[in-house]
Every structure is written in C-alpha cells, then in structure tokens.
C-alpha cells in the first residue's frame, strides 16, 4: 500500500490538483459571501449554498466554523470531479494496466491511491480554511462581532470544523472512488456523482424528509455544517463512516476481482 501511496504522490504533482485546491478556495469564498455578510435576525436555509446563521448564531464561538462548513456541497462536487478524473483517467489512459502489473496486489493498489488522495484532500481543506478564516473576518465587516471566533472556544470550534470538513471530503472521495471503479470513466463518474449529490438526494428528501437521517450525501452535509447537539453529531459521524466504509470496501472488491480489459 505504501508503494501505491508513494506512486500517487508523483501523480499529484500535476497542475489539475493545484486547480482543484484553487476551485475549493473559490467556492469557499463565494459561500462565505452568502454566509457571513449582512446576517439577518433569523437563520435561513439556502439549500446547497448552506445554512445562513442568524446574527446571534454567526457571532457565537462556532459561527465561523459552521459558516465554513457551508462549502461542503461544493467541496463534494470538486472532490468527486478530482477523484473521478484520477481513477477514471487510469482507465482512459490505460495506465491501470501498467500499474496493476507493477503492483499486482490490487487491493493495496487502490487503497494506497485512496490514502494519497485523502492526504491531498486534507491539505486542500487546511489551506482553504487558512485562507478563508481571515477572509471571513474581512467579509463580516465591523457590523458583526467576531470576537468569540478567535477566543479559545472559537479556535477549538474552528479546528473541529476543519476536521469535519476533512472527514466530509474523505467521505465524498470514497463515493468518487466507488463510482470511478464501477463506471471506469471520469465523465460518467462525475455525471452520476453530481446528479446524485444535487437533484437526486434533494428530491429524495423533499419526498421523504426522514431519509435525510441516512442518505449519505445528507449525512456528509450535516457533519460538515456542525451543530449544537454533540450526540447527534457523533451519530452523524458514525453514519458517514459507515457509508464511506461500504463505498471503499465495495470499490476494492470490484477492483480486485474484475478483469482489467481497458
């Protein structure tokens, strides 16, 4: 697995992955414009653009962390696209053949690649938060009291929120890995993944609101946006981890046992 991880690090030098970081930062800044400028007296749900907190909620210690979490849907789109391009590209370029000959332990090959992508995503989220947090301070302007964001509790919430965003990006990545391995095509995996995140799950929740408690996309969004209820957050984390494990195990089994004919 370490061999695959190290091999993947060379691939991650490609400009595509720098553009990926830039895209996440851009989406984050757009989200913050919606989330932290000119808050109203009551919270409002803007769908994929996130949950805009009330002024009181925004000025709370976790106001910044929860606002940063609003990027999770867009983060999911970028992550799905990058992971699909990474793994779907192996089939498109035929590099999956040479990789599987050089490292014939296919489970280790896929897991090593996934771990390297996880590392890249963690760096992406940390860099994005490092840029977005001071940007949020500037966007909030003098009209919003941000003193509690930078207190001990606020910084702890920011770190927890960053961790949640990293976990969310990893969960999206596992879905991307599964789709790319199943479909063996980057465009197909991106299309199916984004269609699932946006219209399919949103419509499913409209039709059956209770489904939000177990649909993978809804759980990931809920995890990243955080909340006051620690017990509910822990439950959400277990749900996300379960889906991620199912996706990763499924992808590994398919990759391990299916002939490589591309």
């Amino acid at each position: 697995m370490i061999r695959a991880f190290r091999g993947e690090l060379v691939k991650l030098r490609q400009s595509t992955y720098l553009f990926g970081i830039a895209a996440v930062i851009a989406f984050m800044l757009i989200t913050l414009v919606v989330s932290v400028t000119d808050p109203g007296p009551v919270a409002g749900d803007r769908g994929p653009a996130g949950l805009v907190l009330s002024r009181d909620g925004l000025e709370a210690a976790d106001g910044l962390a929860r606002s940063l979490g609003n990027v999770v849907t867009f983060l999911g789109i970028v992550v799905l696209a990058l992971v699909s391009v990474n793994i779907g590209g192996e089939y498109r370029f035929g590099t999956i053949r040479s990789s599987a000959v050089r490292l014939p332990f296919r489970g280790r090959l896929l897991l090593g690649k996934t771990m390297a992508l996880f590392g890249y995503l963690a760096v992406t989220v940390v860099v994005t938060v490092a840029i977005a947090a001071p940007a949020a301070q500037l966007m909030a302007g003098p009209g919003v009291d941000t003193e509690r964001w930078w207190g001990r509790e606020g910084v702890a919430e920011l770190m927890l929120g960053t961790g949640s965003l990293i976990a969310a990006s990893w969960a999206w990545a596992t879905i991307g890995v599964l789709l790319a391995v199943l479909l063996r095509s980057a465009p197909a995996a991106i299309g199916v993944g984004i269609a699932y995140i946006l219209p399919v799950e949103i419509l499913a929740v409209e039709v059956a609101p209770d489904a939000a408690a177990w649909l993978p996309g809804q759980l990931i969004v809920s995890l990243a946006r955080g909340g006051d209820n620690a017990a509910a957050q822990a439950e959400t984390l277990v749900g996300v981890a379960s889906w991620a494990t199912i996706a990763l195990v499924g992808a590994t089994l398919v990759f391990k046992f299916r002939d490589i004919t591309d």
């Binding site: 190290r6 091999g7 060379v10 691939k11 400009s15 370029f93 990789s99 490292l103």
Partner: peptide, 16 residues
Amino acid sequence: YPRLSGRANLAVLERL
C-alpha cells in the same frame, strides 16, 4: 499520464 514528464511517469512505475 500525458501531463507528467517521461521521467515522472517512470518514477510512478518504479515506486509502484
């Protein structure tokens, strides 16, 4: 991988 150099492509395989 078309965006990587020939040497980097070989490095991927060597690491694998």
